[in-house]
Nucleic acid binder design. Structure first.
Lengths: 205, 205
DNA sequence: TCGCCTTTGTGAAATATGTCCATAACTATA
DNA sequence: TATAGTTATGGACATATTTCACAAAGGCGA
């Protein structure tokens, strides 16, 4: 119905719905149902309906959901109906992979700067980006007003860099360093650590 | 008390504890408490105690936990007290970054083969690995008996490759392709999609 | 228009997860 | 040995999340 307090776990599923709906739209479909969407993303139809109904009545009985309408609504809810500037810290292998990744732009994000503290790397190019000096990171982030960062520095440096990012005004960090970050309540962190993800599956093997 | 049926959500936290404990051990600490560990990983002490106590009485009242003992126990529970062979499918930028990543070996994993379907790439090297032909993927995986795979192919190819992996006996997939995979119940998938992770945070900005 | 089919939205019930707290166990100190 | 200070354990309690099941609404064909 309305947006009192939406649990984070629901927010976490919306990007998955969004991704699946985008694929359906791309393949020319116009409508879908909670049943069909659920089969695509591996989530029960009831849960999808409940999740969506938190934000309004977006479906039609007997018909299901208009894909384009639902896409627009979800993008609005997640605030990816705009382009977010993101900075990338760390120009190692992972930094290169992210800098070259073509999948950000049509999903609401744009890398605006890449920083590294290795003076050898500063000034060199990654694709269209010139690597900037980490010494100027805080000032530049403040100037640009960037709120999101991707962190691909070595683990021992990560907390220190995160502190600086937060000081510079960053409020959301996608952390590739294999370490838990200590951040204030008003800062969000998402963790990507392949070894951790693999370890989460071995239990079941 | 014991291992009747451990919720997946608990299994998911164990690798995080493991990672933090490993860091503590590396810095020379011998014991820790649920309180201290919780501060490191951002989880309440009560929850950590409850999680750990699912598997046995690993702590000592008044003292806390022996870091080395708890490390051993967690590794045993997660079955990362051994080395798992992993295949990497897709030799793009992300595949390169993973192939060069040094963080797998001391956390229980070893990349044993890299496959790509681009004949131009087959035979070329990534570090110490020679890229192999995807046509022979199924057979080779079967021969090696590999149970885990990392998937870094383009989204349109991912489901098809996943089907082949499963046919070859793979039971756990770390999926970097931005698409939900349809897999049988006895196969585990973990998703890594930077755009999805970023979209999970914009809601709060 | 009238049935019949489909599908949503949603309270209620069922599960699952997280927190609290009383108790017991251990350390350290005197 | 006694006492004070820590800390794990585990059961009770509180919250959160998921599933169920059904009324209501829309589509479609006769």
């Amino acid at each position: 119905m309305n947006a009192e307090k939406i649990p984070d776990i629901i927010i976490g599923r919306l990007p998955v719905y969004l991704r699946a709906l985008q694929r359906m739209a791309d393949s020319g479909l116009k409508t879908t149902s909670s049943q069909e969407l659920g089969e695509h993303v591996g989530i029960s139809a009831a849960q999808i309906r409940k999740d969506i109904s938190q934000f309004g009545e977006f479906g039609k009985q007997g018909t299901g959901y208009s894909i384009q309408f639902l896409l627009d609504k979800l993008r609005g809810i997640l605030k990816v109906d705009r382009i977010w500037d993101v900075v990338l810290i760390g120009a190692g292998d992972m930094g290169h992979a992210l800098a070259n990744y073509q999948g950000f732009t049509n999903r609401g994000f744009r890398i605006v700067s890449i920083f590294d503290n290795d003076k050898e790397k500063v000034g060199t190019m990654i694709g269209e980006y010139k690597i900037e000096d980490a010494d100027q990171m805080v000032e530049k982030i403040k100037t640009m007003g960037v709120k999101m960062a991707m962190l691909t520095v070595p683990a021992p440096a990560a907390q220190n860099v995160a502190d600086k990012l937060i000081q510079a005004g960053v409020r959301a960090i996608l952390n590739y360093a294999p370490i838990s970050l200590n951040v204030p309540n008003n800062v969000k962190v998402q963790y990507i650590d392949p070894a951790t993800h693999l370890q989460r599956m071995t239990y079941y093997l």
